[in-house]
């Protein structure tokens, strides 16, 4: 199965069991179709996204697995961060539908042909998607939630541990000195 891949694509050997290859957005569907037809990589096991905010791009990772679960192949596809949509894989792999729905919610990536891109885990979310790196989690939490005040005897844990250790040490030394 590797011979076909090495013949037709620039395969990157990451580890003995993990391979990667770069595809563009336009090549993706065609490449996936060719690979699932000609090799034993026939299952989509993961769909990941990495936010490279400095380079203004998302890197999507389509992880394919063979039936023995012995080898993995990752198709990497870079897209621009703002308002770029991907073709949906829902017709090729049924499980892609829910993975795309999650990426849509967490990163705001659109998927053409996926009918289920509505609220998933976050209901009524009206901020920027929370997994994008420009999202300030702490500011959001401070604006939306109340924190419980600390206890009245709110002690500094590190200081207290130091004090207790010092007290235990002096208690140990005193009887031996006397």
């Amino acid at each position: 199965m590797m011979s076909y891949l090495e013949e037709h694509y620039e395969l990157i050997h990451k580890t003995p069991r993990l391979f990667a290859l770069h595809v563009t957005r336009e090549q993706l569907l065609d490449t996936l179709h060719q690979i699932t037809t000609h090799t034993s990589f026939d299952t989509l096991s993961q769909l990941t996204c990495t936010d490279w905010i400095e380079e203004e791009r998302f890197e999507l990772g389509y992880m394919l697995t063979n039936a023995l679960r012995s080898h993995n192949l990752m198709l990497k596809c870079s897209i621009a961060r703002d308002k770029v949509t991907m073709p949906s894989l829902a017709l090729l792999f049924a499980q892609a539908e829910v993975m795309e729905r999650e990426l849509h919610e967490m990163f705001g990536i659109g998927f053409e042909g996926n009918e289920t891109l509505y609220d998933f885990a976050l209901e009524g979310w009206c901020d920027i998607p929370p997994m994008r790196r420009e999202f300030d989690t702490l500011a959001y939490v401070n604006a939306h939630y109340d924190f419980r005040e600390g206890r009245e005897d709110n002690l500094d844990v590190k200081e207290e541990i130091k004090k207790r250790k010092a007290a235990a040490k002096s208690a140990k030394e005193t009887p031996s000195g006397a």
Partner: peptide, 12 residues
């Protein structure tokens, strides 16, 4: 405590 998607005080 700093998650965007969990409540912090149930008794609210």
């Amino acid at each position: 405590w700093d998650s965007y998607n969990t409540i912090k005080k149930l008794d609210d």
